[in-house]
Simulated scan of single mutants.
Amino acid sequence: MTELQAYPMNGGDGHHSYTKNSNYQKNVMVSAKELITENILEKLDIKSFNPPISTFRIADLGCSVGPNTFLAVQNIMEAVKFKYQKLEIESEIPEFQVFFNDHVANDFNTLFTSMASNREYYAAGVPGSFYNRLFPASSLHVVYSVFSIQWLSKVPKHVVDKSSSAWSKGRVHYSSAPDAVIKVFEAQFRSDMDSFLSARAKEVVQGGLMTLLAPGRPNGTAHSLSPLNLVFDGLGPCIMELVNKGVVEEEKLESFNIPIYHMSAEELAEAVERNGCFSIEQIEAMPNIAVNFNLPKEKICLHVRAIVGVLVKQHFGEEILDQLFELYLNKLEEHAFKFNPQMEKAVNIFAFLKRK
């Protein structure tokens, strides 16, 4: 695993695509719409933009392939326009420019093909990791990112190092691992968030806003108790079964790990405070939007495949995908009872920040 790995969602619009299997993310985003609108109306200080701006710039970091990103952008634009209307300066409503960012490997073709032709903004794709600088200094007015910052920039090297005390032998996710493994994931999250916030601090104008939505866990909750973590952790035994069948080399399993970290609101707040460039307008867990494990297990399986399928393909090869996720579906059916008691531990972290 090299620095700043790309972890694109499954592209296209087929049966296994992220486009067809991202309703959960959409539901979270819709549930947060009112929070985002209220914060924009209250916190966006249009009169501080002096002289009045002619172009209002919005960036979606980790946009994937749609269609969720288009709905989010429309919601933000409507809130900004409403702010101008409330101030009775409708004549000053600027033009909008929206930047859709994701890794170079993202399926931008699907993204732009599905974009509405009657959109009310100028669109541009910005390839690259959001853990680096992406935009000129003081050029963005609103930054939006949903279900993206849980992805780390890389798998911590100690996790796949057999000589390290943090070697995560036989596991593909950190949640059920010993404390030494969890600690290096926590450290990687802190380092990545420091990079993310430092880059945004340079790119966002003074008084500009940033809203973040990410899957997480309640403050003080062990990683092993998060059902979101259980979902990914369950892939490990399935890959081991393929190892035992001789389909996958054990060495391949030992060098594989999913670079997803489910933060708490407290951890995110600490990162913002360390950075010091943003004021925390709101950070909270949203427990009312839980993972629905009562969904047909096929839907959960398709959802997970859309998220990590490309990662699995990159490491093990495309030929194991169908077999692996058939085993994974069976695991979901067998062990579904384990998830239900923990449903209240599945939360989404909502943060609204303002550039000082």
Rank of each mutant, 00 (worst) to 15 (best):
E3W: 05
N348W: 02
R274V: 09
K83Q: 08
L134W: 08
M263L: 12
F147E: 10
K354Q: 15
I36T: 07
A166P: 05
S153L: 12
Y122H: 13
T55C: 13
N39L: 07
H103W: 10
R57Q: 13
R133N: 13
G317R: 13
C238M: 08
G14T: 09
N23Y: 06
A346F: 10
G317C: 10
S168R: 02
V347D: 00
A201M: 04
E298S: 12
L268P: 02
P227S: 00
Y122W: 09
N21R: 06
G208C: 06
F70C: 10
E249F: 00
M343V: 14
V291I: 14
I258E: 06
F350L: 11
E203M: 05
P136A: 09
H315C: 07
L242E: 06
P156Y: 04
G216E: 07
D192M: 08
N288K: 09
N330P: 00
N132F: 05
N101K: 08
G216W: 10
V248C: 03
N294E: 08
H103G: 14
C277D: 14
T211A: 04
G14Y: 06
I89M: 12
R217Y: 01
D107N: 11
E344M: 11
D45E: 13
V104K: 14
F256M: 03
F147Q: 09
P259A: 01
P52H: 13
F147L: 08
L327G: 02
K162I: 03
N27G: 02
L4N: 15
G309C: 09
L197D: 04
H158P: 01
S54N: 13
S64V: 05
Y131T: 07
L324G: 04
C277F: 12
A116R: 14
S224G: 06
K245S: 02
